[in-house]
Amino acid sequence: MSDRFSGKAWVYGDNVDTDVIIPARYLSTSNPAELAPHCLEDLDSGFMKKMEPGDLIVAGGNFGCGSSREHAPLAIKGAGVSCVIAVSFARIFFRNALNIGLPILECPEAVSGIESGQRVEVDLAEGRILNLDTGKAFSAKPFPPFLRDLVARGGLVPAVRARLEERRRNAR
């Protein structure tokens, strides 16, 4: 997975909880492709109709609060969202997102400088966020390399698998 991507931003407010990201009535599966059609259904029923793969979610503070369900980042990733930029993330969602390989960035300045429908470019390694429509650039604190590696490998389980495989190969 690349460290750079661009797409349209879809902007939401504070406290976007995991129940509106993926309602519990769909939790009978953890298949991202089956969860995706219901992503953000109870917050913005038009989201999946208007978004295109590669688009970004931009939101206020405490994104992903509530239930610890990893289905929430899985639904967002399954929908094809390339990155979530928020003022802040709820603790459990923050780690769930990284663990399933969903890129996220915390950047309050970017959130106030991006409107719904504007095109945004993100460089994860640099933590650089560029509003392509206004030309304004913002910098988020980039994640340390080991966390970027985790996301790039698709999450915690694939990353650990790869590390174990590497260790096995070196032991031979």
């Binding site: 909880d17 129940d19 509106v20 309602p23 109870d42 509530g66």
Partner: peptide
């Protein structure tokens, strides 16, 4: 512990 939109059923 939670009362989000749709938490206990219909949105």
């Amino acid at each position: 512990n939670r009362n989000f939109v749709g938490r206990m059923g219909h949105a």
